[in-house]
Design a protein around this nucleic acid. Sequence first.
DNA 1: GTGAAATTGTTATTTTATAACATAACCAGA
DNA 2: TCTGGTTATGTTATAAAATAACAATTTCAC
Lengths: 162, 162
Amino acid sequence: MPSSKSDRPMPPDARQALEQAALLCQQRGARLTELRRRVLEIIWNSPAPLGAYAILDILRDEGRPGAPPTVYRALDFLLEQGLIHRLASLNVFTGCRQPGSHHGGQFLICQECGLVDELSNPRLEELLQNEAAIRQFEVLAQTVEMLGRCPACRNGVARHAG
Amino acid sequence: MPSSKSDRPMPPDARQALEQAALLCQQRGARLTELRRRVLEIIWNSPAPLGAYAILDILRDEGRPGAPPTVYRALDFLLEQGLIHRLASLNVFTGCRQPGSHHGGQFLICQECGLVDELSNPRLEELLQNEAAIRQFEVLAQTVEMLGRCPACRNGVARHAG
DNA sequence: GTGAAATTGTTATTTTATAACATAACCAGA
DNA sequence: TCTGGTTATGTTATAAAATAACAATTTCAC
């Protein structure tokens, strides 16, 4: 069955992510409302990470009422629940591939097609934490993003991330 | 001799950074103009990293003409020359502690006082590059920032970074 | 000096994000 | 099932960060 709002079928990743999000929220007593769920779905359905205003445009195309706070509040909720990440270097949002484990995340981001690869290297985490610990620095949030070109784009494949 | 535009004496770090910047630019044939030099000086004189508009305010207080592009162009130059870094998680700029070596930089940033500690851990760099290489990903820029609390602020010292 | 290139000045606009307050939905307890 | 507090959403306005576009000026090699 295709997505309720799009001509394209929902990617399997998206469906699974939404199911897991619902489960996690239920377990936590957090309310994954229709709006929040839809925003998460939009993010997962997009091949490339989306900015807040791009999400807003999609919501409006669906006939929903909406203004910037509508989107930013939903994004704030999803960020708090660890269901999405904000990529600070591009001001865009992408679905979290390891929800449930509150983590900073480490990303490879293709500047050409928008492909996002989320790493999860414990040695890297450890090394970062260690650098902070040596300096008696308490880490509350981390941003690890590498921008560049993905293999496909390096080979001249001029399509969008899939 | 104190700074030409401030009541406070220029920190030794700032003086040294400016000298090295001048040298590097000379070697490269890049023009560290009065405006660019002054912006770099403002950044180095500040205990906490500054946003573009904070820098603009300082320039205007000095009676200079100025609009956002004035500052952003100077910042772009300084970024290109590797003399400053942009901290994407806070939209602020800070002086580079290892100018000359074009590098992404890794930062510990105190959210309370603005203290910035620039790391330079080769093993960390290597680990990041390796993760990218494994995925055949070409890295063009990197952002590694850890936000939290510095030792002083953890101990309740409520002053600004020095 | 002259002309091309680089830098700066200036106005306007775009993009990203939040403040403030009104309305509506939800839900626990009487 | 009221009721009242909490949470979520609607709405208007504004703040904050960054860039576009073009004019004027400076710089510097020739």
